[in-house]
Simulated assay, not measured.
Amino acid sequence: MLADRTQARAAERMRADFVTNASHELRTPLSSIIGFVETLRGPAVDDSDARTRFLGIVAEQAERMRRLIDDLLGLSRIEMNEHRAPEQSARLDLLAEAEAEALAPILQARKAQVSLELEPAVAAPSEPEQLSQVLRNLLENAVRHGREGGQIILSVRVLRGSEGGLPPGVLLRVADDGPGIAREHIPRLTERFYRVDKGRSRSVGGTGLGLAIVKHIVNHHRGQLLIESEPGIGTTFRVWLPGRAPDQ
């Protein structure tokens, strides 16, 4: 009896690739930490300037590992519950405002600004905590990969009729005026650990999992994620979700 195992083998390859990539992403900062600890125990044991500099690097690499582990655990939890429909509702405009305010330190570091265009909107059914994470990841992505000193537009509005191929619902939009992304990269942006510029992504604190988390949360909410970009112009992420205007 013949059986088509194409999908099963593809899933096995994906799992193997995921484990390999995760191991590599963790091994790099861990090797750095081990190397600097050995230096601090040996050649730099009496060098106060070197000790201060190396301890700063160790702390930075440890924080990188913490972010990666948090994202790996978060992605695992989202995937486990992706088949369950959300049961709550959320004021998407209020979540957007709160996440924009919380982003102030990163904005200041990049000398960037966020312009808010927020219409009262209810995402339902939804899970507010997960939608906050979508907002956080998209905003951080725009700040870190947009132009230094750039402008980010964060908008929320209600679609009361079909628009641009999208049915009625609520629409979240995050746009930056950064360098943009070449067309061939766009279909792969939500793959785990996929980076357009690996060196730059790591240097600005990316784990390579943020957009994968966004994709899975949007799928969990039975929504749609649309990505548009033009090199030299910027990148726009649009998230459509089931929802409506608030009850009067």
Score class of each variant (00 low, 15 high):
residue 195 R to D: 11
residue 195 R to G: 08
residue 164 G to S: 06
residue 220 H to P: 06
residue 205 G to D: 07
residue 106 I to C: 05
residue 146 G to P: 02
residue 184 E to N: 11
residue 97 E to R: 02
residue 163 E to C: 07
residue 145 H to T: 12
residue 221 H to R: 08
residue 172 L to W: 01
residue 176 D to W: 07
residue 190 T to Q: 05
residue 102 A to I: 09
residue 215 K to L: 14
residue 201 S to G: 15
residue 145 H to S: 11
residue 178 G to S: 03
residue 181 I to N: 07
residue 171 L to K: 02
residue 187 P to F: 08
residue 218 V to Q: 00
residue 136 R to Y: 08
residue 109 A to D: 13
residue 204 V to R: 06
residue 171 L to H: 02
residue 126 S to T: 08
residue 138 L to C: 01
residue 118 L to I: 03
residue 207 T to N: 06
residue 123 A to K: 01
residue 197 D to A: 09
residue 178 G to V: 04
residue 105 P to C: 04
residue 157 R to L: 01
residue 144 R to S: 03
residue 179 P to I: 13
residue 145 H to C: 11
residue 105 P to E: 04
residue 102 A to Y: 05
residue 210 G to F: 04
residue 193 F to E: 07
residue 224 Q to W: 10
residue 153 I to V: 15
residue 103 L to G: 01
residue 147 R to H: 11
residue 188 R to D: 02
residue 143 V to I: 12
residue 197 D to P: 03
residue 221 H to V: 11
residue 105 P to L: 07
residue 112 A to N: 01
residue 190 T to P: 01
residue 156 V to L: 00
residue 139 L to Y: 04
residue 146 G to I: 05
residue 209 L to T: 05
residue 211 L to M: 08
residue 117 E to Q: 13
residue 232 G to C: 07
residue 113 Q to R: 15
residue 154 L to E: 00
residue 186 I to F: 03
residue 197 D to W: 02
residue 170 V to Y: 00
residue 133 Q to S: 10
residue 96 A to L: 09
residue 94 L to H: 11
residue 193 F to M: 10
residue 203 S to E: 06
residue 112 A to C: 05
residue 103 L to C: 08
residue 175 A to R: 13
residue 190 T to A: 10
residue 230 E to W: 10
residue 175 A to E: 10
